[in-house]
Write a protein that binds this DNA or RNA. Structure first.
Length: 940
DNA sequence: GACATCACG
DNA sequence: GACGTACGTGATGTCG
C-alpha cells in the first residue's frame, strides 16, 4: 500500500476527488455492465481507467510522489449544523450507481492508492486540508476533479485536472470562470449561491454581478458593510436584506483546511501496487482491456529495466508468472528454419522444455483440401521458428520461384519422434484442424492440449476463443493479421505464395502466442475447477471429431439435382400464382416487397412492424393471414419453403461434395456454443430438413456406400429425463423408469385424462409444455406455440408447477445461483456463464434467466453426448468397417457394412446409454433408439 | 455487413 | 399497466 514519505518542494501530491468523479462518470459514460452477470460497473470502469492513466501516463517529472483518492463519508456533515437545508435538494443516488460506491473504493486500494474518507467531512474538506498542507511545504498539488467548489484552492502550486476533459485548471481558468482570482472565489460563491448544493447566497445576484461588486469593494465583508452605498436600488436592497444569508453561505462554501486528517499527508507516499491484488480486482470486474493494458505497462517496465541497467532480472515465480505473462513480442527473434541442422536444434529445445506449441501453415482453410506448407514450433516466449516446406513463391526479389527450404519428407521424418513422444506436450490452437492435416501425412501428434478448448472450458459465454481474440483479451496484443501478409480479395495469396520473411513473422508469432496462452490459461483450469470438464470431456474431442470430418457422408448428387429441378418447378408455379393474386410482379424473396404488397398494396389487417420499421412477414404473421382466408400468404409461404430447400440444401449441398472423396465433409465447431453443444458449418449438417414431407426428401440423398447402411442413434427425450433428475420430479422419474409415453403421462397428470383416453391433441399440448419448461417457460411463449390464449397458457403452467413440485424450486435455485455466481453448471461441472443475469432491464434479465434455466439441461445432455463420442472409437473398434460420421446434438450417425449393422446398433446403444457413467449417476434411465437403413431418411 | 427469415435439436 | 418473451445454432437472400 502507501508508505511514509516526507513532503518536500520536489514532491507532487495528487488528490483524486473520488465521489465527484464517480457521479460524473456515471452520467457521462455509457451504462456498462459486467458481461458475466450484468452488474453495473460503468463508473468503476471509468474510475479504474482514470487511476491507471494517472499512475502510468504521467511523465517522469509530473509522476506523483503522494497519491490518495478521497471520498465523501455517508451521513451528515458540520455544514448541516450551519444550514439544515445544505444539499437538501439532492435525491438518492441512482440505483445503478449505489453498488458501485464500494467497488470504487476497492478499485482505489487495488491500484495501491489509499481510499480516504472521514465521518462528518466532505471529500472537499479533506482535499483542502491535504492541499494546503502540501502547499505550505512547497510541494506541487494536483487535484483530480472538475468540481468548481474546489477552485478556491487553486494557486501557483495547486492546480486542478478535469479527468473527463483532460483539461488543466489553473489560476487563469478559474478567473475565466468566476471573473475573480482564486482567493476571491469563496466570496463570489457566497453571493451567487449554488442551486446544486442548495447554498442560498443572495437572491438576484449571480456570478457576474458578484464578481463586479467584489471588484469594486474588495471583499465580501467590506461589500456587506458598505452595501448601502450601492447605486442600483435592486442590488442594494437585496444585499442589505440578505447579508446574513451571504455570511451563512460563506461558511458553507469555505472548505475546511484544518481537518485532523487520517492518514496524515506524509503517509500518502506512492508505492507500486500489489500486482496480485490488482489483477484479482481487475479480473473480478471483468475489465479485460484494462487488465491487458496494465499487464503491458508492467511488462514494459520490466523490459526497460533489463535494458537500462543490463542486469538479469530474477525469474518470476510460477504464481506470479501466471498473473503476469510476458506480453512483449519480439519478432526479430523468430527464426526461419531452412536446414536439418537448425531443425534438429529446435526439436532438441522442445525435448528440453517438454512443451512445444505446434502450428501448421497450409494453403486452405479446409483441412481436407489443405496441403501442408510449413510447420511452426514455439518453445519459450519469443523463441519460435517457422519451417517452410512447400513454398512456391517468394524465392527471389520478384516473388517468383521456390525459395530454399527443407525437403518435406525429411523434415516430417525428423519431427515425427517429437510429435509422438509421450513426454513432450504438443500445444495447439484449434488443434482439430492441425490433427486433420497431420493425419493425411500419417502423423498423429500426442499428447496434446488445445488452448481454444481450455479457453472454452474457462470462459464460455464471456469471450470468444479464436486466437486473435484471446491474444487481444489476455495480452492486449493483436497478432499480425493474415490479410497483412496475404492481401485481400481475389488477389489474396495462399500461404505457399508468401515470402519466407513475411511467412515467418506471421506463423512463428501464432505459435508464440499459442504457447503463451497455454502458460497463462492452463493453470486457471484448476483454480476455476473445470479441469475435469477439459480433461475428461473436451480435450479428447479434437481427434475424434477430426476423424468424423475426414470420413464425411456420401450424398447422391443425382438425387439432389432431381430435387433441385423439382423445387424449381414448384417455385415457378407458385411465383406465377403470387404475381397473379397481387396483380403485378414482385420479388417473393424480398421480405420488404412482400410486406409492401400484403399490407400497403392489398391493405391486409394484422400487420406488425419490425424494430427497423419494415413490415414483419415471418411465418407466424403469414400463417395468421392464411387462416383468415387470404390466398396470397399461403402461396408465399409455400414458395419460401421450396426456395429454402433449394438454395440452402439441394443446390448448396451439391456444391459441397468433395471431388476427391465424393462425400460431404462438414466442420464441427467444438467451442461455438454457450452450453457445450457442437455446431456444424460449411455445410451445416445439423439442420437437414425432417419436419415436413417435402423437406425430408433431402434426407433420401444422404446414403451409405454400396453394401453398407447408415445407422442413426438418438437419445430419446434426454433433456426431459435430465430435467426429471435435476429437478427431482418423482412422478416423471417413475414414468421414465416404467417406459411410458412421457408426454401422455404429463397430459394425464395435468388434465386428469386417463392414459387410455388420451387424444393426440391433448398430448400435443402437454408436449409443448414439457418443451416450454426446458426453455424457461413463459405464458406468452407457450400460448404462441400451442395456439391457446395467454390466460389458458398461464393456467397450464400453474397446473404444471402444482403437479410437478420441484420444478419451481429448481428454477428459483438455478436463477439464484446464476445471479450470485454469474454462471450455472452442468452435472459434469461445465460452467455456462450467463451474460446479463444481473441486468436491471427486466426484459434482458428475464432472457438471461431463461438461459440460466435451460443451460444446465441442454449442457448436461451435450456433455453426455461428448462423452459418448469420445468413448465411441474404442467401442466400435470391434465392429469392423464401422465409422462414426455425424453428430446432431442428440443423434449420432454411423456407416457400417450391412451385415454388421446389428452388432453396431447394440454397441452404440450401450455406449451412449452409459456414457455418463461412472462420472455421474442418474435417477432416470437413459434410452437410445437406433435404426439402420440405406439412407438417412429411412434410418429414423 | 445488418437484417429477416427459416432449417435443425 | 405496458412491454416483449420460449433455449441453442448456421445459411441464405435482400438491401443499403
Amino acid at each position: 500500500m502507501s508508505q511514509s514519505k516526507p513532503v518536500t518542494p520536489q514532491s507532487h501530491v495528487v488528490l483524486v476527488d473520488g465521489s465527484g468523479y464517480i457521479f460524473r462518470a456515471f452520467h457521462a459514460l455509457p451504462p456498462l455492465t459486467r458481461k458475466r452477470d450484468g452488474l453495473p460497473i460503468g463508473a468503476v470502469a471509468g474510475f479504474s481507467n482514470m487511476l491507471f492513466k494517472m499512475l502510468k501516463d504521467q511523465k517522469d517529472e509530473s509522476r506523483p510522489t503522494h497519491f490518495a483518492v478521497i471520498f465523501d463519508a455517508s451521513g451528515q456533515t458540520f455544514r448541516n449544523d450551519i444550514y439544515d437545508l445544505y444539499k437538501a435538494n439532492r435525491g438518492e443516488p441512482p440505483e445503478d450507481l449505489v453498488p458501485q460506491f464500494p467497488l470504487t473504493r476497492d478499485a482505489s486500494r487495488a491500484f495501491g492508492a489509499p481510499a480516504v474518507e472521514m465521518t462528518g467531512f466532505e471529500a472537499d474538506d479533506l482535499i483542502a486540508t491535504y492541499a494546503r498542507q502540501a502547499e505550505a511545504l512547497g510541494a506541487r498539488v494536483t487535484i483530480i476533479s472538475s468540481d468548481k467548489d474546489l477552485m478556491q484552492l487553486v494557486s501557483d502550486r495547486v492546480s486542478m485536472l478535469d479527468p473527463m476533459k483532460n483539461k488543466t485548471i489553473g489560476p487563469k481558468e478559474v478567473e475565466e470562470k468566476f471573473g475573480v482570482s482564486p482567493d476571491k472565489v469563496i466570496d463570489v460563491q457566497s453571493l451567487a449561491g449554488d442551486s446544486v448544493d442548495n447554498v442560498p447566497g443572495v437572491p438576484g445576484i449571480g456570478v457576474k454581478t458578484a464578481a463586479l461588486l467584489l471588484d469594486q469593494y474588495g471583499d465580501l465583508e467590506t461589500l456587506l458593510e458598505r452595501a448601502g452605498e450601492i447605486p442600483q436600488k435592486g442590488r442594494r436592497e437585496k444585499l442589505l436584506e440578505h447579508a446574513d444569508m451571504a455570511r451563512v453561505s460563506k461558511k458553507l462554501v469555505t472548505l475546511k483546511c484544518d481537518v485532523d486528517v487520517d492518514p496524515v499527508l506524509e503517509d500518502l507516499g506512492v508505492t507500486d501496487p500489489d500486482v496480485e491484488q490488482l489483477f484479482d480486482f481487475l479480473e473480478e470486474m471483468g475489465f479485460r482491456t484494462l487488465t491487458a493494458r496494465v499487464r503491458q505497462a508492467l511488462g514494459e517496465g520490466v523490459t526497460d529495466g533489463i535494458r537500462a541497467d543490463d542486469t538479469k532480472v530474477e525469474v518470476a515465480s510460477p504464481a506470479t508468472r501466471d498473473r503476469y505473462p510476458n506480453t512483449v513480442f519480439d519478432h526479430t527473434k523468430y527464426e526461419c528454419v531452412q536446414s536439418a541442422d537448425r531443425l534438429a536444434h529446435w526439436i532438441a529445445r522442445a525435448f528440453e522444455t517438454g512443451v512445444v506449441a505446434v502450428d501448421l501453415e497450409t494453403d486452405s482453410l479446409d483441412s481436407r483440401a489443405a496441403n501442408m506448407v510449413g510447420v511452426c514450433l514455439a518453445v519459450e516466449d519469443n523463441e519460435a521458428c517457422y519451417v517452410p516446406l512447400a513454398h512456391t513463391g517468394g524465392g527471389d526479389l520478384l516473388g517468383d520461384g521456390a525459395p530454399e527450404q527443407m525437403d518435406m519428407d525429411r523434415a516430417l521424418e525428423m519431427l515425427a519422434p517429437l510429435l509422438h513422444d509421450a513426454s513432450v506436450l504438443k500445444v495447439g490452437q484449434n488443434f482439430k484442424y492441425d490433427l486433420g492435416v497431420f493425419k493425411r501425412y500419417d502423423l498423429n501428434p500426442t499428447p496434446y492440449d488445445d488452448t481454444m478448448l481450455i479457453s472454452y472450458a474457462l470462459h464460455n459465454g464471456i469471450n470468444g476463443h479464436g486466437m486473435d481474440t484471446l491474444s487481444e483479451t489476455h495480452f492486449a496484443h493483436s497478432p499480425v493479421p493474415f490479410k497483412e501478409i496475404a492481401g485481400t480479395g481475389k488477389n489474396q495469396k495462399t500461404f505457399d505464395q508468401i515470402g519466407l520473411e513475411e511467412a515467418t513473422r506471421y506463423a512463428a508469432e501464432d505459435a508464440d502466442v499459442t504457447l503463451r496462452l497455454w502458460k497463462y490459461l492452463k493453470p486457471k483450469l484448476a483454480t476455476s475447477q473445470v479441469t475435469r470438464v477439459y480433461e475428461a470431456i473436451d480435450r479428447d474431442m479434437p481427434h475424434v471429431v477430426a476423424k468424423m470430418e475426414n470420413e464425411g457422408i456420401k450424398v447422391d448428387r443425382a438425387e439432389l439435382a432431381r430435387l433441385s429441378s423439382y423445387f424449381s418447378q414448384k417455385m415457378a408455379g407458385l411465383e406465377a400464382e403470387a404475381h397473379e393474386i397481387a396483380e403485378g410482379p414482385f420479388n417473393l424473396g424480398s421480405p420488404k416487397q412482400v410486406g409492401e404488397i400484403l399490407f400497403d398494396k392489398m391493405g391486409l389487417e394484422g400487420g406488425k412492424k419490425t424494430k427497423t420499421g419494415a413490415w414483419q412477414t415471418g411465418v407466424d404473421i403469414l400463417e395468421d393471414l392464411a387462416d383468415n382466408g387470404e390466398p396470397l400468404p399461403r402461396t408465399i409461404l409455400n414458395w419460401r419453403q421450396f426456395s429454402k430447400l433449394k438454395s440452402t440444401y439441394t443446390d448448396a449441398l451439391q456444391a459441397q461434395i468433395n471431388p476427391e472423396t465424393e462425400r460431404v465433409h462438414t466442420s464441427f465447431s467444438l467451442a461455438a456454443t454457450t452450453t457445450g453443444r457442437l455446431s456444424s458449418s460449411d455445410p451445416n449438417l445439423q439442420n437437414i430438413p425432417i419436419r415436413t414431407e417435402e423437406g425430408r426428401k433431402i434426407r433420401d440423398a444422404f446414403i451409405a456406400e454400396a453394401g453398407h447402411v447408415l445407422v442413426a442413434a438418438d437419445y430419446s427425450q434426454i433433456e426431459l429425463r435430465l430435467l426429471a433428475h435435476m429437478a427431482d420430479l418423482p412422478t416423471m422419474k417413475q414414468a421414465f423408469a416404467d417406459g411410458v409415453d412421457i408426454h401422455a403421462l404429463t397430459a394425464s397428470e395435468m388434465f386428469g385424462v386417463k392414459l387410455a383416453d388420451m387424444t393426440p391433441d391433448i398430448r400435443r399440448q402437454a408436449k409443448a409444455i414439457n418443451f416450454g419448461i426446458i426453455y424457461g417457460i413463459s405464458a406468452f411463449g407457450l400460448a404462441k406455440n400451442t395456439g391457446v390464449d395467454r390466460g389458458t397458457a398461464a393456467e397450464f403452467i400453474k397446473t404444471y408447477f402444482e403437479k410437478f413440485p420441484g420444478i419451481r424450486a429448481y428454477m428459483d435455485a438455478t436463477k439464484a445461483e446464476a445471479k450470485e455466481r454469474g454462471y450455472v453448471s452442468t452435472l459434469f461441472g461445465r460452467k455456462c456463464h450467463i451474460a446479463g443475469i444481473r441486468e436491471r432491464n427486466p426484459q434482458r434479465r428475464a432472457f438471461a434467466e431463461r438461459q440460466a434455466i435451460n443451460a444446465p439441461i441442454q449442457g448436461t445432455a451435450a456433455d453426455i453426448m461428448r462423452r459418448a463420442m469420445i468413448k465411441m472409437p474404442d467401442a466400435i473398434a470391434s465392429v469392423e468397417g464401422a465409422r462414426m460420421l455425424l453428430q446432431v446434438h442428440d443423434e449420432l450417425v454411423f456407416e457400417v457394412p450391412e451385415d454388421r449393422a446389428d452388432a453396431l446398433i447394440s454397441t452404440v446403444k450401450t455406449t451412449m446409454e452409459h456414457a455418463h457413467e461412472p462420472a455421474i449417476t442418474l435417477s432416470v434411465p437413459i434410452d437410445v433408439e437406433a435404426q439402420a437403413a440405406t439412407n438417412w431418411n429411412d434410418a429414423h
